[in-house]
């Protein structure tokens, strides 16, 4: 799943290094538009829905954080 999310992110923000990087939201690499497109892609590709209450900066600030929030809803 991690690879799939990385693939989606690389498609959304092709010019940025994502693996191992933190501060994706804080450094404005992921805009609010990109976060919503990412959620839409995760739903389409992985059939996992991230609810609005979990759309907070700390859940999108790194690849690890995004994977963690996706896994949380995969188990539901």
């Amino acid at each position: 799943m991690r690879e799939k999310i990385l693939e989606i992110l690389e498609d959304l923000i092709p010019d940025e290094e994502i693996e191992g990087r933190t501060g994706l939201v804080e450094d404005r690499i992921l805009s609010s538009f990109t976060i919503l497109n990412l959620i839409s892609e995760i739903y389409d590709e992985l059939d996992i829905e991230i609810p609005v209450e979990d759309v907070v900066p700390e859940n999108f600030d790194s690849l690890d954080a995004i994977v963690a929030v996706v896994e949380k809803y995969q188990q539901v």
């Binding site: 609010s32 919503l36 959620i39 839409s40 739903y43 389409d44 609005v52 759309v55």
Partner: peptide, 23 residues
């Protein structure tokens, strides 16, 4: 506005259905 209107509105059921049609 982003956290309490923009995100909830975009992730609402209506917008999801609308998104399927636009895709």
């Amino acid at each position: 506005m982003r956290d309490y209107v923009f995100y909830p509105l975009t992730l609402s059921g209506f917008m999801k259905k609308f998104g399927k049609k636009t895709k």
